[in-house]
Amino acid sequence: MAESEIIILIVSAIIGLFFWGQWYWIIHRVNPLASGPQYRWPLQWTPPICIAAFYAVVQKFASWDVIGSLAYTTFYLVFAAAWVGALRPLLGFCGVSWRDDVLERANTAAVMPVAAGLFALTLCFTGGNIGDGPGWWVVFFAAGMATVALIVCWQILELVCHNHEIITIDRDVDCGLRLAGWLVAMGLLFGCGAAGDWVSVEATIDDFVPYAIAGFVMMIAYMILEAFIRPHGIVREKGEFLWGTLPALAYITSALIWLASIGWWKQ
């Protein structure tokens, strides 16, 4: 490994340990009177699931010098943990908080968006790792582009739809499920947009454009659908398949079908 890679590894390890150490410490510390194990388990298990998904993809589709290399696989695993950990507070800026809503207020509706938000960040970073490239800065650029697109779309969505109000104040489980499905779909689109062999910055941006357009269409579709299916005067705290799970699956399925139809990512 090059000197710069060792420095990045050490910095990533420190960042990852800080953010995930804080994550698990708070989960352990928050008084059990505030929220039961059903709220803590999803938070405890989401990071390992994200890392496992990242590992599975990297082992199959990463650069030729990463696949099968213990050193580079470890390097990118630590990099991924730091990436998702350091960007995790962005979920709070988008209106849903793992600590305030899930742990301290036992809000069932917030559990899925938090888990899906972390998974979407993981998908964006995973996409940046797919394909051959000269080094970690290529991953940083491609994954950064995907992550910025995700957060910008989420912020626009919040300005228009105010999902955070419905999820964190109304505690509408169906809205939480719909947002979770949309986040995973956007993570898939932008992650695949960031994937592919590295040629240049311009080529990476050019390749990303169709995926960004697809993400934009998905965002508009969410806004339109939300206007029709959002309850007026009804609080659905239990969750119903028709209004929560089904739209969530529809977003993810639409993204998968579109990606399959264009060949997942550009080589």
């Binding site: 928050v30 709070g92 301290e104 912020q155 955070h164």
Partner: peptide, 21 residues
């Protein structure tokens, strides 16, 4: 009012307790 990050600003400058609150 109603901004997604307004809660963070309302809490700015206050100190959280690791056990909650």
């Amino acid at each position: 009012f109603r901004l997604a990050f307004s809660r963070l600003l309302v809490m700015f400058g206050l100190r959280r307790n690791s056990a909650g609150g």
